[in-house]
Amino acid sequence: MRAHYRGWEEGDGPLLAAVTVLGRTGPQVHFDGIPLIGRPVTAVETDITRHVTDNNLGLRFASRGDLGLYGLGVWVRSARVGDTSVSEARIGAEEWEEE
C-alpha cells in the first residue's frame, strides 16, 4: 500500500488524504462484492459500471482516465506488470485531487 498526504494544517502536520492498494501486491479490497485489486482493469471497470447502472449511482473520470465512483473517493487505477497491466485502487477523501 502507498499513503498519500496533503498539505500541513496549522500545527497538525500532514493529513492522510488517500491510500493506494497496489495491484501487484495487494491486499485484496472489495467494493460491494467486487474485487478491485490484481484483475484486468477492463474487467473491474465493467463490474463497477454494471454496479453503478444497477444502483443509479454516478461515475467520475480522472484526467489520466481512471474510473471513480462519484461521491465515494474510490478510484480504479492500472499498474504495469511486465507487458500487461492489473487493477489497483486509490481510496481517499473525496476532495483529494487525482493527478
Rank of each mutant, 00 (worst) to 15 (best):
G73V: 06
S63D: 13
S85P: 05
L36P: 02
R90G: 13
I34A: 03
I91M: 03
G26V: 03
F61N: 12
L72Q: 12
V52I: 11
L36T: 08
L15F: 09
T20W: 03
E98P: 09
M1G: 10
D66Q: 11
D83L: 11
G92I: 00
H4Q: 13
G92E: 02
E97T: 15
R24L: 09
A62S: 14
A18E: 05
P40I: 08
P35N: 06
A93M: 13
L59K: 05
H4S: 15
S87V: 02
V76P: 05
Y5I: 04
E10K: 06
T25Q: 10
D54Y: 12
R6Y: 11
R64A: 12
R60W: 08
V74K: 04
I48R: 03
G38F: 11
P35W: 02
P40S: 03
A62V: 08
L67H: 00
L57I: 08
Y70D: 15
L57S: 10
G11M: 00
H30R: 03
T84N: 10
A3S: 09
E97N: 13
G92T: 01
E99H: 14
P27L: 00
G82A: 08
R39D: 14
S78H: 04
V19E: 02
L57H: 08
D66P: 07
S63T: 12
G82C: 08
I34H: 01
T46F: 09
T53D: 15
R80E: 09
E88H: 08
V52L: 03
E99S: 14
V52N: 03
N56F: 14
I48A: 12
D47V: 07
W96F: 15
V19C: 01
D83S: 10
A3K: 07
Q28K: 07
S87Y: 03
H30L: 06
D12I: 08
R60C: 12
G65M: 01
A18D: 01
E97C: 13
Q28M: 09
T20V: 05
E9S: 13
P40C: 06
S87K: 04
T84F: 09
I37G: 02
S87W: 05
N56Y: 14
D66N: 14
S87E: 05
L72P: 08
I37L: 01
A18V: 00
L72D: 11
T25K: 05
F31K: 01
D83E: 15
E99T: 15
I91T: 05
A3Q: 06
D12H: 14
E94R: 12
V76D: 07
A17V: 03
R90C: 14
S78M: 04
G73S: 00
I91S: 04
H4F: 11
V19L: 02
N55C: 12
E10R: 07
T49G: 11
L72F: 07
V44K: 01
A89D: 05
D32C: 03
F61A: 12
E45F: 07
G23C: 01
W8H: 10
I37Q: 04
R50D: 14
E9D: 11
R6A: 09
D54W: 11
N56C: 15
P35I: 00
V81P: 07
F61K: 14
S78F: 02
L72V: 13
G82V: 04
T42H: 13
T49C: 09
Y70H: 15
G11N: 00
D47R: 08
E97Y: 09
